[in-house]
Design a protein around this nucleic acid. Structure first.
Lengths: 335, 335
DNA sequence: CTGAAAGCGCTTACAG
DNA sequence: CTGAAAGCGCTTACAG
């Protein structure tokens, strides 16, 4: 196993031309005789040449990658988004550098700096915990787009599910007659996304005449989750709306532990509806996020902004799709 | 929004030192007076300097990233692995460049070339469809480790679940009395992993006195899946062993469509057991892959090999954990 | 169509 | 402890 390091000089020599010409031939520029191109290509092929992208990008002042910051341990929703983005980015002939933002402002700052150090053409941030300060910092160096979390910045694009879809889910709960509804929430500085979502749920529920019970964070699992469920039960909530599917699953597991059945005793809804959670077999009532669209839109936004950095920021809302499922049902009749 | 481009010269000037000194101060080398370090750091801070990693790596002949090739649309198992790897890589102060290998040898070759062009310190391949030829090619340039798929190459490390765990799952099926078992398979050139797994299942089942019915590929869904289930039923199989959880889910959905219940009419097993599939609420009988260990081991292997490229290749097998679930049960009694 | 030369933004012996 | 200079592997005006 030889670790060769064949450079441009090597193939230029082999082809009997200058480095300049070799470079031009390899990059497929015109103004190079087809003979030369052929010779150079052949030499590159046989010597196993692979262009050093770092040097190439440096010399030509280009970027061959775009960066994405996410939280490795985040719910699969962001993972799905990342997968779509990866595909689209690849089709554009770019590479994806992925960094783990982690939970704190500091780790996110480091992650972003790393991305910027690689001189990425643009930065995509996909994490419910993203710090706006970090996003703003990144935006002073490169085009930034937020996906899966909204913002109103004038120089950061964003794309996120339409709040109307969140409201639609709340209305679905109302339509089954629920008038005391528990809603999981999150501290704004922990997850802006979950915080906002809880707000939207709550206001829509109240508008529909329901009493909303804030049962706090439940997405952490453990004692907090048990506490949240207890609070919901004590308040005689007939439905529990969670901010994402994993939380819904945890709630259901907790209910099962307590021998409380659904949807006859209590209804539960989730959010995201990606992967397994969308399975009709499992029958979860949830809102499917438009992951494909979100991913593609994110790339489109960042590409547009790379092309024209002075364009006004755009904030695009994409509709979700309600998955009816079987975890939401009518209010239990008082016997 | 100003797109600044502050270079080493700028901060050297601001600090009143040479670029050499500025560079050294920023890199935290000794032999620099603490005054100078302070001045330079301050200047860098205030000017918003971010070191160009491309230039830095180029000049110092170092690599600041490692690369991973996977298939974006692959089952979540690989996604989970990637997430763990991302975390560990970050802890090592490296960045992760992720490329989509796709299905064909050609797309994989391009993906790998791109990684090599970025001069990554090592390459991790995590895709059931990975071409060995491509892996071998990569290995002639950088340390390569395969994760989630086995190989016996002498210059490519690998880490994968222990086949004993696959056998254990087959024995669990046998222990419930099943003697006619359907097994999904895959063409070796489509997914080496699934192909091998089907082989292991089959041989263990036969050793246990069971008749094995090869019902072909079912992980594609659609007509092929329906056909596979039909074949299993016609052969009077009392259990169906699938190669991964998503396939198991598809099979269950198909069974439900046909009003066939489990495990009383037919048992079904999956494989991977990550994320939602491990939920006791859902109760799938599957084998949990040691994703955390696989991810960490992959990094460890690649790091070791970066440090000593002449080390003999290591192939590490990690044990899985049987998740009992409720999709596997006793053979239905003949009424 | 091709080549010599300057330069991309850094690092690092070498000399002081 | 610090600086001038060479060099990392490319690209690209500029001149021919």
């Amino acid at each position: 196993m030889t670790r060769r390091s064949v450079g441009l000089i090597d193939i230029a020599t082999a082809a009997g031309v200058s480095r300049s010409t070799a470079s031009r031939a390899l990059r497929g520029e015109d103004r190079v005789s087809s003979d030369t191109v052929e010779k150079v290509r052949r030499a590159a092929e046989s010597l196993g040449y692979v262009r050093d992208l770092r040097a190439s990008d440096l010399a030509s002042n280009q970027a061959s990658a775009i960066g994405i910051m996410l939280r490795a341990s985040e719910r699969s929703f962001y993972g799905e988004i990342a997968a779509r983005i990866q595909t689209v980015v690849g089709q554009q002939g770019l590479d994806l550098i992925i960094v783990n933002g982690g939970d704190s402002r500091d780790t996110q700052m480091r992650a972003i700096s790393s991305l910027l150090g690689h001189k990425v053409a643009g930065v995509i941030i996909a994490s419910g915990r993203a710090s706006m300060e970090v996003a703003q910092y990144a935006a002073s160096f490169a085009p930034v787009v937020l996906v899966g979390l909204s913002c109103s910045s004038s120089d950061i694009d964003s794309t996120v599910i339409d709040p109307d879809s969140e409201r639609a889910l709340a209305r679905a709960v109302l339509s089954y007659g629920h008038r005391t509804v528990a809603v999981t929430s999150a501290a704004a500085d922990v997850s802006r996304t979950l915080y906002d979502r809880a707000e939207v749920f709550s206001s829509e529920l109240r508008d529909g005449g329901a009493t909303v019970v804030d049962i706090g964070e439940a997405h952490q699992g453990g004692a907090q989750l048990a506490q949240a469920v207890t609070t919901a039960i004590k308040a005689h909530a007939t439905a529990i709306m969670t901010g994402d599917d994993p939380t819904m699953l945890s709630v259901l597991e907790e209910l099962q532990r307590r021998r409380i059945s659904w949807p006859d005793q209590v209804s539960v809804t989730g959010f995201d509806g990606v992967g397994v959670f969308a399975s009709p077999l499992l029958g979860f009532t949830t809102m499917r996020q438009p992951v494909e669209d979100l991913g593609q839109t994110a790339i489109r936004l960042v590409m547009t902004r790379i092309a024209d950095s002075s364009a006004a920021a755009r904030h695009l809302y994409l509709p979700g799709r309600l998955l009816p499922g079987r975890t939401l049902g009518p209010v239990p009749s008082l016997d």
